[in-house]
Amino acid sequence: MNDKTCIARLKLGDFRNYISASLRLDGRHVVLTGTNGSGKTNLMEAVSFLSPGRGLRRAALSDVVRAGAAGGFSIFAEVQGMAGEVELGTGTEMQDETTLRRLRVNGAPVRSLDELTDHLRLIWLTPAMDSLFTGPSSERRRFLDRLVLSIDPGHGRRASDFERAMRSRNRLLAEGRFDPSWLAGIENQMAALGVAMAVARQEMIRLLTGLIDERRALSPFPVADLRLEGFLDRENAQAAIDLEDGYRDRLAMERGRDAAAGRTLEGPHRSDLLVRHRDKAMEAERCSTGEQKALLIGLILAHAELVASMTGFAPILLLDEIAAHLDEGRRAALFDRIDALGGQAFMTGTDRHMFASLGDRAQFITVQDGLLSADENHGA
Rank of each mutant, 00 (worst) to 15 (best):
T117I: 03
L132H: 06
L319E: 11
G135P: 01
L122W: 10
D114H: 12
E45R: 13
R276V: 11
A324K: 11
H29N: 15
A198Y: 09
L132E: 08
S74I: 11
S51R: 06
M347S: 08
R177A: 12
T99L: 06
A333H: 08
L12F: 14
G84T: 15
R141Q: 02
D258C: 04
A200D: 07
W182H: 00
E115L: 15
L120R: 08
A8I: 02
G230C: 05
D242F: 14
S168D: 11
L326F: 08
R66P: 09
L10P: 07
R337T: 14
G359E: 10
L341I: 12
G135M: 03
R9V: 07
F355E: 12
L12P: 14
I241R: 06
K4W: 01
A200L: 13
S48I: 09
F178L: 08
N170E: 06
G359C: 09
P52I: 07
A191D: 01
L334F: 02
G27H: 05
S51K: 04
T126A: 11
E187P: 04
F73Y: 15
E78R: 14
A174I: 00
G298W: 03
E376R: 09
R16K: 13
V79A: 02
G154Q: 14
A345G: 02
H155E: 08
S137L: 08
L25M: 05
A191K: 06
R9M: 12
H277W: 10
I297E: 00
G298H: 11
R121N: 10
A83E: 05
P52Q: 05
R140G: 03
P109F: 02
A191P: 11
L299Q: 09
T35A: 15
S138I: 09
D272E: 15
H353N: 10
S137T: 07
L10V: 09
H155F: 04
M129Y: 01
R142A: 06
V30M: 02
F162V: 12
R250A: 03
L183R: 01
F221C: 04
R158C: 09
G72P: 11
E291Y: 09
L193E: 04
V148M: 01
L265H: 03
L144M: 15
A374K: 13
E203Y: 06
S160M: 10
L88S: 08
E115I: 07
D320C: 04
E285C: 13
E214V: 02
L211W: 05
D249A: 15
V367R: 10
A174N: 06
T35G: 11
T134H: 13
G176Y: 07
G342T: 07
G27E: 00
V31F: 08
T348K: 00
L232F: 06
R167Y: 01
Q368H: 13
F15D: 06
L341D: 07
Q344S: 04
A308L: 01
L306E: 01
R54T: 13
P180L: 05
G53V: 03
D320V: 08
T264E: 12
H325A: 13
L103M: 04
R111H: 09
R104K: 14
S373A: 12
G156M: 10
L226H: 03
L125I: 08
R121E: 00
L218Q: 12
G154K: 09
R9K: 14
F76C: 06
F364S: 01
G55D: 02
G185M: 04
F313P: 11
A200H: 03
L334A: 06
L372A: 11
A67G: 04
L25G: 08
E214N: 07
D179Y: 01
R9Q: 15
V275S: 07
